[in-house]
Amino acid sequence: MKKPVHEFTAEVPEWSPYVTPVDFETATPEQRAAMKITPSNKGVSAYVLTLAHDPESLDVRSPLFNLIMYGKDGLASAERELGATAASVVNRCIYCTAVHTSRFLNLTKRTDVVDAIFADERNARLEPRHQALFDFAAKLSTTPIEASADDAAKLKDVGLSELEQLDLVLSAAIFGWANRLMHTLGEPLA
């Protein structure tokens, strides 16, 4: 019997919804289109089946998410993952944190960075470039929003171009969205 996960981990858990997901077999054509079901792609997660209750949103959100997180130019992938992680730590989305720290680890092998974040969360001490990115993304994720132009200036100080700065804003903000679905509509199990 799997149990809810309450502590941060880089081992990706299962996600179990609190609402009944859309039934794959009886999904409407619009829901199937939003879930990107094709003859060659029949594997649909419980998360996507849950979001298929609102196909108009899902249909736009998936390409937007992929473009922000996996676009080719601009901010390095690992640094987008760090922005995603900062938001997910602030919002305590255990599942999102696991997915995106594991991606960060695959890209960088920097277990020391992830260990520091899991140990001290928002107070984690990181090398200057990571610190600037992590702190800005975390402060942009709080309510009220704690970030300021001084925090943004630190991004420039550590050498981020305007496009990279923009990508960090987007990667943190899209997790202000993702966390509010993943963490509130279901729970991580392991």
Partner: peptide, 11 residues
């Protein structure tokens, strides 16, 4: 949306 606008304003 609130965070994209706030972030852009700081940048």
């Amino acid at each position: 949306q609130l965070r994209v606008i706030a972030g852009l304003t700081f940048l």
